[in-house]
């Protein structure tokens, strides 16, 4: 029997969609700058720079909402990883997504009040939100104020290294976004997770 949990309070939904819009804008403008071509302009370079800068600053504010919200409401507990068991849990979840799902098996880590995320979700969300996004924000601010970056790192431009790190992590976040959107279709119905992120109620499989 399907059970409904109110997993996504208003502040979380607001943050999630704000974060989503900002990330998409940052990826599109970032790609436009990185692969700028006068013959095939996807977006005017100066416009892409302005949008990227503004959305980057807003992403910093949005990240603070996420951090403070997680601390105040206790939402942060869902991201805690048990390093002793995580590898076996990940294998189980991976097997489920690659085999069990097609055999009609039950999910190995069913969602309940104490467990909002399965192990794969947990580790990917934790890495993205606590490692990748902070690194993107730090390197982004360093690129916004290039005069504060270290000028020379063993003969290589500090700005260059900062930018390389920024775009490599940006690439991984882009891949995460695509995988995240796809996995959101694996719910009770293909659209149920999307609906949940609008009305706040998560509906489990029957």
């Amino acid at each position: 029997m399907a059970v409904k949990y109110y997993f996504y309070p208003l502040w979380l939904r607001f943050w999630h969609w704000l974060n989503a819009v900002l990330c998409i804008l940052l990826i599109l403008t970032g790609l436009s700058m990185q692969y700028s071509n006068p013959d095939f302009p996807f977006m005017r370079f100066d416009l892409a720079v302005s949008i990227h800068n503004i959305t980057g600053i807003l992403l910093t504010a949005s990240y603070l909402i996420f951090l403070v919200g997680n601390m105040i409401t206790g939402n942060g507990r869902y991201y805690h990883l048990n390093l002793r068991t995580i590898s076996t849990e990940l294998m189980k979840q991976f097997k489920y997504y690659t085999l069990g799902l097609f055999r009609g098996e039950k999910p190995p880590f069913p969602i309940n009040e104490k467990r909002k995320f399965n192990p794969l979700q947990k580790i990917s969300y934790a890495v993205v939100m606590y490692v990748f996004i902070p690194l993107l924000i730090i390197t982004g601010w360093a690129l916004l104020f290039p005069e504060i970056t270290i000028h020379d790192v063993f003969g290589v431009s500090g700005l260059h290294l900062t930018d390389l790190l920024h775009l490599i992590i940006g690439f991984f976040v882009s891949v995460f976004l695509i995988v995240h959107i796809y996995f959101s279709t694996i719910g009770a119905t293909p659209l149920s997770h999307f609906k949940a992120m609008f009305n706040g109620w998560h509906k489990t499989h029957d």
């Binding site: 000028h151 431009s157 700005l159 260059h160």
Partner: peptide
């Protein structure tokens, strides 16, 4: 261009481009 500067859009790395396309 890489000696002392980094020019966004002008300094692309061939290998990084290739790896990112393959991964994607």
């Amino acid at each position: 261009l890489l000696g002392e500067y980094y020019v966004v859009g002008a300094n692309r790395n061939y290998y990084l481009n290739l790896i990112s396309i393959v991964l994607f």
